[in-house]
C-alpha cells in the first residue's frame, strides 16, 4: 500500500526523544528519599566491594584499581541498562504504538538515551575518587565523546534487533539477562586483561564490548591513546551492528501491530 503525506513534520523527533528521556528520569526516582543520589551511590558501593575482593582475594595489582573499576562499570552500566530495558522498549510501549502514528524506533532510542544519561551520574563518584586518590587526568579524556558516540551506535543496533525479535518471540526478553551475565564476566570490566592466560586473550577480540571498554579506559583510565586500529575496530563494529539492527527492524516493523 501507499501512504502519502503532503506536509510531513519529521523535525520534531529529536525533541520527542528528549521529552521521553526527561520523563524517564523524572519518574524513575519518584518517592525515593535519596533520589538521584542512588545512581551515584550504586557504582561507588560496587567499586568498594570489588576493590576489596579483587585486590585482596584475587591479588589483582593495578595502579589506581578503584578508577579502573569505576571506568569499566560506567561503560558496562550504559550497556546492560540499555539492553535490559531496550529489549522491552517496543512491547512496553504497545499501548502508544497502537494509538499514535509514531515510528517505534523512537522508543528504543529514548530508552538507550535515558540509560546513558543515567549511567553518566557515575561521573560524579569517578571525579571524587580520582581527586581523592591523586589520579592525574590525561589528554586521552578528549576521546570520550567520540567513544561514547560509537558505543551508542553499537548499542542502538543491538537494541533494535533484540527489541524487534522480542515482539515476535517474548523469549528474547528472558534470555537477555543470563547472556548479559556471561558477557559481563567475559569482558574485562573488573579484572585486567593481563589477568587472563595468554592463550585466552585473543578471544577477547571477539567480544565486541571489550573494544569499547578499551576506548573508555583510554579516556578515563591511564590506557594509551587509541590507535587507528582501535578506532577502526570500534567504527566497524558499530556500523555492522547498526546495519544488522536496522535490517531486522525494517523487516519486522510493519507487522508489529499484529503481535503487540
Amino acid at each position: 500500500m501507499e501512504y502519502v503525506v503532503s506536509q510531513q513534520s519529521r523535525g520534531h523527533r529529536l525533541e520527542l526523544v528528549k521529552l521521553l528521556i526527561r520523563r524517564d528520569l523524572k519518574v524513575r526516582y519518584r518517592g525515593s528519599f535519596l533520589g538521584y543520589l542512588w545512581s551515584m551511590l550504586n557504582p561507588l558501593l560496587m567499586m568498594t566491594v570489588m576493590t576489596v575482593v579483587f585486590s585482596h582475594a584475587m591479588r589483582v595489582d593495578l595502579p589506581n584499581y578503584p578508577i579502573y573499576i569505576l571506568s569499566g562499570l560506567l561503560a558496562w552500566n550504559m550497556f546492560s541498562q540499555s539492553i535490559n530495558l531496550g529489549v522491552r522498549s517496543f512491547v512496553d510501549n504497545a499501548a502508544l504504538l497502537k494509538k499514535v502514528r509514531i515510528p517505534s524506533w523512537i522508543f528504543s532510542s529514548a530508552t538507550i538515551g535515558s540509560a546513558f544519561v543515567h549511567a553518566c551520574f557515575a561521573f560524579v563518584p569517578y571525579i571524587v575518587i580520582a581527586l581523592a586518590t591523586g589520579f592525574s587526568f590525561s589528554v586521552g579524556l578528549l576521546q570520550l565523546p567520540l567513544v561514547m558516540l560509537l558505543f551508542y551506535l553499537f548499542v542502538q543496533g543491538v537494541v533494535l534487533m533484540i527489541a524487534t525479535l522480542n515482539v515476535f518471540f517474548r523469549d528474547v526478553g528472558h534470555v537477555v539477562e543470563p547472556i548479559l551475565q556471561i558477557v559481563f564476566y567475559a569482558s574485562p570490566v573488573l579484572y585486567p586483561v593481563s589477568a587472563l592466560p595468554e592463550k585466552y586473550r585473543v578471544l577477547l577480540d571477539f567480544n565486541p564490548v571489550s573494544h569499547y571498554l578499551r576506548g573508555f579506559r583510554s579516556a578515563l583510565y591511564s590506557f594509551p591513546i587509541l590507535t587507528v586500529a582501535d578506532w577502526s575496530a570500534m567504527a566497524a563494529i558499530s556500523a555492522f551492528s547498526l546495519f544488522l539492527g536496522s535490517w531486522v527492524y525494517n523487516r519486522g516493523r510493519d507487522r508489529f501491530l499484529y503481535y503487540l
Partner: peptide
C-alpha cells in the same frame, strides 16, 4: 487513515496536518 496500521493494498493521500 491515521497511518498507524498498514493496509495490504490501496493508497492513502493526506493533504495537511492530521491529528487523531
Amino acid at each position: 487513515l491515521a497511518g498507524i496500521l498498514r493496509a495490504r493494498d490501496g493508497r492513502i493521500n493526506v493533504n495537511g496536518r492530521m491529528t487523531s
